[in-house]
């Protein structure tokens, strides 16, 4: 769940927007470059955006007795690298802010930072680490997607804690409180997201061998 409209003080809202905007702009340029360099992967790239679109729409129940939704940003980050995701994440967030009153325009920068930037970069780093240490494609994708999802919601918790420090415990105390809500709720959903992402990659390994080889996911060099 994203930070709601108006729920970050103006200075924080502006600061996160200033931090995210150049990354989204660069990301848009990277998407254009990926499409120009490998036109055959264009539809797969769009499908990664579509995956994030679906997963963000699914509010799932959690063992904490509350609901949240996965992010779906790990798939694109693993297949195309993290730089293509900030712009796609921001589009999903903009759709939800404008049409669903979910998240918000004033919190778009902060939410893009957690979902479009931190999540995908954590996903990609984990994917590379697991692959380099000889882990299977499936294990790498699972850990990347699940922990990328977790990192997004941990970031949300820290963002809220910075804006609303606990009168007694300060930012740390407040972070613990928000983590108690967002991170705890997210654990089973992050596992579900990891599994769903592996399901898609398993399907792609059969249907899209050419593209996955182009992207160095399958074939020689996949583990380097």
């Amino acid at each position: 769940m994203h930070i709601m409209e108006g729920f970050l003080p103006a200075t924080h809202a502006i600061a996160w927007t200033v931090a995210s905007a150049p990354v989204v702009a660069y990301s848009a340029w990277r998407v254009k470059k990926v499409v120009e360099e490998n036109p055959s992967t264009k539809l797969l790239l769009a499908s990664c955006g579509a995956f994030a679109f679906v997963l963000s729409a699914l509010k799932l129940p959690s063992v904490t007795g509350s609901c949240s939704h996965p992010t779906g940003t790990g798939l694109g980050a693993v297949l195309f690298g993290p730089w293509v995701m900030p712009v796609m994440g921001s589009i999903v967030l903009l759709f939800q802010a404008l049409l669903l009153a979910h998240g918000g325009i004033t919190t778009l920068g902060a939410n893009t930072f957690s979902m479009g930037i931190v999540g995908p970069f954590v996903s990609y780093a984990l994917y590379r680490m697991v692959r380099k240490s000889g882990g299977s494609l499936q294990l790498a994708v699972f850990l990347a997607a699940a922990l990328g999802d977790m990192s997004t919601y941990c970031t949300t918790s820290v963002q809220l804690a910075l804006a609303f420090p606990d009168p007694v415990g300060g930012v740390l105390g407040s972070t613990a409180k928000f983590l108690g809500i967002f991170a705890l709720t997210q654990v089973p959903l992050a596992i579900a997201e990891g599994l769903l992402t592996v399901i898609v990659v398993n399907i792609l390994s059969k249907t899209s061998v050419g593209e996955l080889k182009t992207l160095n996911i399958l074939g020689r060099g996949a583990q380097a």
Partner: peptide
């Protein structure tokens, strides 16, 4: 599980 399965963002609003 005790809970109304509301949004985690509503809970955050409570905090």
């Amino acid at each position: 599980i005790a809970g109304e399965f509301g949004g985690s963002d509503d809970q955050a609003e409570g905090v």
